[in-house]
Design a protein around this nucleic acid. Structure first.
Lengths: 121, 121
DNA sequence: CGCAGCAGATTACATGTGTAATCGAAGGGG
DNA sequence: CCCCTTCGATTACACATGTAATCTGCTGCG
């Protein structure tokens, strides 16, 4: 599975949210603050097709695009990559880090505790 | 703080481990499997200097390099970036994801629970 | 005192990425 | 039936990245 660049990821998000879509529809749904032209979106779509991250079917003389990889798989790969690089592949140090970096509120902690408890049973 | 590329990060790791070091010393410590020439390491060092991620002091006619940013800060930024992109900035979904992706062993879970308990007090 | 060798600086070059503009075909409106 | 619009395809172009090789200036060895 080829690497998806950050700008490309924006397009993937759109299509994971709703698919299939035409290029124009994707363009409409790209977050406004990106300020992308339709042309840019089309470039992203082609590159993602080439990378095998999207598939397309013809609808008249347009394409309908849809994801060819699952969001979970992509997220798993990316977060795994980060954990491997920064935390030697271990998850506990990541959580410890998040905690000490104040990314964890008391509510977070309680949610996670509940989650873990559920996991054990 | 400018973005540090993946290859550059390898050099940062070396210097976070031990500093200050000369270019040659850094080169020796770069993981063998990278197969980098000394020239490549020197390029990384210059780029990191330019980005302000390293500082250097002269020692004779060589430089001694040392990190100018803390590993903690870099890791915080990168993991924050991932969490924002993939989990809408919320940590709990990340942990949930890790759990469902089988990145959490029973021991992990117990370690994290202990960690969280300590955090609350 | 001259030169081999090492330091950093400069240059190289292919590929990836961000952000389009342009081109050629096709189809719909008048 | 012809032209304007709209598609996807092709081309553009600057900057980043990965991976070096070359250049230039000192410096210590002989």
């Amino acid at each position: 599975m080829e690497r998806i660049a950050e700008a490309e990821y924006v397009v993937m998000e759109v299509l994971w949210e709703e698919a299939p879509l035409t290029a124009a529809e994707v363009s409409e749904r790209v977050p406004r603050e990106r300020g992308w032209s339709l042309a840019t979106v089309k470039t992203m779509l082609s590159r993602l097709l080439a990378k095998g991250a999207l598939s397309h079917e013809e609808e008249g003389r347009r394409y309908l695009y849809r994801p060819a990889i699952r969001r979970e798989d992509y997220v798993a790969e990316e977060s795994g990559r980060l954990i491997d690089r920064m935390f030697g592949g271990r998850v506990t140090p990541l959580v410890a880090h998040l905690a000490s970096a104040d990314r964890l509120s008391v509510e977070d902690i309680e949610e996670i505790e509940a989650l873990l408890k559920a996991l054990k049973s």
